[in-house]
Design a protein around this nucleic acid. Structure first.
Length: 595
RNA sequence: GGCCUCAUAGUUCAACGGAUAGAACGGAAGUUUCCUAAACUUUAGAUACAGGUUCGAUUCCUGUUGAGGCUACCA
């Protein structure tokens, strides 16, 4: 890669000119802005101190050195403190020749080192998946692919939260008011059916609270003394005591939910290497807490509860074990993290979890380190922002959630309507048309969510739904389909891609821009895996597609009678299509061969 | 109260401390003998406020204002 060559040569240059052993961070290379002549720009301000010359003079000296000593350097010009270097055409053409047929251009070497474990999704089993889960799933899945492409050995895991008071609420409501309703009898998807009874529970629970408040209780007391919540808690105790009837009901209703989730995951295109169930892991961690008490790093109070004092770290006291000896969230997470560490010996443990749990993960790390687990440093919380609706935050109890299944169906319907309106599918058979709606609809949804920096809250307006024009997935998919169409036509016309001919071609500035953009892909990929950000890949894919469309929109590639130019354009098109498809694959987005 | 995050065109999003802050949608005006108009071209429009560090600040630091989150013997 030219960046590496330049970095080395610049280092050599400042050493020879100014006797400076330059730090890599001082050598700042960037793509030259389009309005200036040149390909790559060196920012020379960091060297003006040692050169004791003006930025212009310094840039000129370094430029002269590079032109003399770097064979790829064609020429240079200086504007203020910016040294714009032009790279020889041969370099770009050689780069094209060597890589245009490479299927995994830019991907890192596959390493056999310790794995990276990525946990994402982690749903509760009392209700269907919603828009917030979609952001989680897409981020986790795309991140896993990006890390894998950069050479890591990735393990995707899901921890299903299948036990607890929430599922007991659904169970109780179903038993009281369900009349034996099943997914088969109701025609409902299993997760939606269970979610329905969660809402039913909440309705009657709220009524009871209301009545108690009328009788004179405070809302807080009322919410604790309502008969329904007490009954639900008793159900949880029965579950923990392995009561057969309770376990059976729990197993049955969870089974419905899993069937529903499986469909949602499949539609969304998400899969895991391993799924853990909280019912099997929730007892883990208690031993760790006891161990901590023995070591004197945690404190047991008179009532039997266990705490850790984190005031030295600038945090509060935190409960690790209840007075009745049962686990809390933190206890379990200590256990599952330890289990996962022992199982995989990972280089990194990544948790894709919303930013409302940032404090929890900070505490988790510190609590483990107090126990002497140095590996706690390998825990990384990929914290993402909330998905907000125009009317504010989603609240499942207030029914302002956007259901994942409904949303995807809407996307499919919208893309179908658009395709029909545009007359896109006249030559398609039914199956191909249906696949296209799915591909486009999902592409729109995924791209819309992934293009936003994970850490930021994002706004989702269901009424406007997701666009199909502009900076969108379908635009990129369209660009891909169009390139494929060009290549098909070329093939039918008997045109051949001959790189030896292309080497003789003149390269238009726009063609070089496109090639430079492709050339950047490995750098972008590395950056994305460093920053854990699919958004970097998404925005890159859009820029690449735009670049292609802008240049070729009114140019007849096939009618060009100069064989060299034709070869250059076809191979450039082929290469662009490859990179677009690779970039979208990293986002979990499919490309259509035609649309 | 304490702690954390965010604040950029009318709207949704960009910008390793670098050049004249980019796109897209929406607004206004155009472009179909061609590979495919889900496209392309032109145009108006923004760094919340006040200081500081720097050759250079949307970016780093301090303060103010505004939005969200956390601060449960819930998970």
């Amino acid at each position: 890669m030219i960046e590496q060559l330049l970095t080395d040569k610049v280092k050599e240059a400042v050493n020879s000119l100014y006797h400076l052993d330059a730090d890599p961070s001082q050598i700042q290379l960037q793509n030259t802005r389009k309005e200036f002549e040149g390909d790559i720009t060196l920012v020379v301000f960091p060297f003006t101190k040692v050169s004791r010359k003006s930025p212009e003079a310094t840039a000129t000296e370094i430029g002269e050195y590079l032109k003399l000593n770097l064979s790829e350097a064609e020429d240079f010009n200086v504007i203020k403190g910016f040294l714009n270097i032009t790279i020889k055409k041969e370099y770009w053409l050689n780069f094209l020749t060597e890589n245009y047929n490479s299927d995994n251009f830019g991907y890192g070497e596959k390493s056999n080192e310790k794995p990276v474990v990525v946990e994402f999704s982690s749903p509760n089993t009392n209700k269907p998946l919603h828009l917030g889960h979609i952001r989680n799933n897409l981020l986790g899945f795309s991140l896993s692919r990006i890390l894998a492409a950069s050479g890591k050995n990735v393990v995707k895991v899901n921890l299903v939260n299948d036990r607890g008071i929430h599922i007991c609420k659904s169970m109780l409501a179903w038993r009281k008011w369900g009349n034996g309703e099943t997914p088969e009898s109701s025609g409902m998807k299993g997760d939606h059916l269970v979610g329905k009874y969660y809402v039913v529970f909440d309705k009657y629970y709220k009524e009871e609270i209301g009545n108690l408040v009328v009788e004179g209780l405070t809302p807080e007391d009322a919410s604790k003394k309502a008969p329904l919540i007490i009954e639900a808690q008793q159900l949880l105790q029965k579950w923990e005591a392995h009561d057969e009837e309770t376990i059976n009901l729990w197993g049955k209703m969870n089974g419905w939910v899993y069937e529903g989730f499986a469909i949602t995951y499949k539609t969304l295109g998400i899969e895991f290497d391993k799924t853990y169930y909280e019912s099997q892991t929730y007892l883990l961690g208690k031993e760790l807490v006891e161990k901590g008490v023995k070591q004197g790093v945690y404190n047991r109070r008179d009532d039997g509860s266990v705490w850790i004092d984190l005031s030295a770290e600038g945090m509060d006291e935190k409960l690790l074990l209840r007075s009745d000896g049962t686990s809390v969230y933190m206890t379990q997470d200590m256990g599952t993290a330890t289990q996962r560490y022992e199982e995989y010996n990972p280089e990194q443990l990544i948790y894709v979890v919303g930013n409302e749990q940032e404090y929890h993960f900070n505490v988790l790390k510190v609590v483990l380190k107090h126990l002497g687990c140095e590996w706690a440093d390998s825990i990384y919380h990929l914290s993402y922002g909330m998905v907000e609706l125009p009317e504010g935050k989603m609240k499942s109890r207030e029914g302002t959630v956007v259901d994942a299944d409904d949303l995807m169906q809407e996307m499919f319907d919208t893309s179908e309507a658009m395709a029909r309106e545009l007359g896109k599918i006249e030559s398609f058979d039914d199956l191909e048309a249906r696949n296209l709606y799915r591909t486009i609809g999902l592409g729109a949804l995924k791209y819309f969510i992934l293009k936003v920096d994970p850490k930021k809250n994002m706004l989702f307006n269901p009424d406007e739904s997701v666009d199909f024009n502009g900076n969108t997935g379908p635009f990129i998919q369209y660009s891909y389909a169009r390139i494929k169409s060009v290549l098909r036509k070329a093939d039918e016309s008997g045109l051949e891609v001959t790189m030896s001919k292309a080497q003789d071609a003149d390269m238009f500035p726009q063609e070089k821009e496109l090639l430079k953009k492709i050339h950047d892909f490995p750098v972008v990929l590395a950056q994305a895996s460093d920053m854990h950000s699919p958004a970097v890949i998404a925005n890159y894919a859009f820029e690449l597609a735009s670049e292609y469309n802008r240049f070729y929109h009114d140019l007849s590639i096939l009618k060009e009678d100069n064989i060299s130019s034709q070869s250059l354009r076809l191979s450039l098109s082929h290469f662009t299509a490859n990179i677009i498809s690779n970039a979208l694959w990293l986002l979990g987005i499919e490309v259509p061969e035609r649309m």
